[in-house]
Design a protein around this nucleic acid. Structure first.
Ligand SMILES: [Mn+2]
Ligand SMILES: [Mn+2]
Ligand SMILES: [Zn+2]
Ligand SMILES: [Zn+2]
Lengths: 152, 152
DNA sequence: TAACAAAGGAAAACGATTTCTTTTTAGTTT
DNA sequence: AAACTAAAAAGAAATCGTTTTCCTTTGTTA
């Protein structure tokens, strides 16, 4: 998928969500998509300032929240409690992530056991589940091997 | 368990964690324990100011973080992104929660499917999982019935 | 009671959000 | 195609929630 196709693709994505296609919104998606790992709002903001003379942090936060609410990008809850964002290339439907706290790589967890658990919990408690969070934190294979190399 | 027993109990808990037993630390546990639902750091701070003439918010945040790290209290990640804290009466080991976003009630989810998933993920990716987040958000039975009563 | 490490307070800094006003977009009408 | 319009988006500044820093106070142990 070349750059032009990507741009047209992003426009379609935004339209589906009922969001207007603005240059800044498209740029946020582009920046996230050309990155392998997850990014912080401030890192995205710095990348944006190369392309735009003025762009405020609130714009970045607002857009990231909207895009995450629409399911286009994923929110990463870092153990440090800072929020990060990630553009999923792999899975398209509902799924969860295993993130590497060292190199920021993200691995998809395709099966969502939480979805089946929701039914059990609703039945048992008589309540209604509206959302859930599932995330695994740790070290990816590469970082684990690297760490073992240093300690051995 | 009466109040005196509780206080002695909290002292032992703090000692096990290698934390000093200070009046403010004990009060934080007491306030959380006598509450049915989860509380925000600021709400806990307000409750503390009734007992102590001076107590800073950083002290409250610091203690809540330490107690949560020690597993004495649980962190609740609210959909609003604000952090809340909860003292578990039921389950003592590792488990997760179903929280009511309306009335703040918390239900235990004793079985932790995430623990078994960790093994699968580690095998598949070759990485190492160090922690995970699992939380279900929604409406408890009472709040669901109440809501249905209004709309019907 | 003395000594040390841990805990707490005050102020500042930081990350994230809200409010309010101006600008831009997308669709509609000339 | 160009101008108009309503709604959405963006900017600036203030505000909120949380954390850090640095120094003083307190708890623990001997
Ligand atoms: Mn993914
Ligand atoms: Mn619990
Ligand atoms: Zn890694
Ligand atoms: Zn409820």
């Amino acid at each position: 998928m070349n750059h032009g196709t990507m741009n047209r693709c992003f426009g379609a994505i935004l339209k589906e969500l009922g969001l207007k296609e603005t240059p800044k919104r498209r740029a946020i998606l582009e920046i996230l998509a050309e990155q392998q790992g997850f990014l912080s709002p401030e890192e995205i903001w710095h990348a944006l300032r190369v392309r735009f003379e003025t762009i405020g942090l609130p714009t970045v936060y607002r857009n990231l929240e909207e895009l995450a609410a629409g399911g286009v990008i994923s929110t990463i809850i870092h153990p440090s409690r800072q929020l990060y964002y990630y553009f999923c290339r792999g899975e398209s439907g509902h799924h969860h992530h295993f993130i590497c706290t060292s190199c920021r790589r993200v691995e998809d967890i395709p099966e969502c056991t939480a979805a089946t658990m929701e039914g059990d919990i609703a039945t048992r408690t008589g309540g209604k589940i509206t959302s859930h969070i599932v995330q695994f934190n740790g070290l990816c294979h590469r970082c684990l091997v690297e760490e073992e190399g240093r300690t051995a």
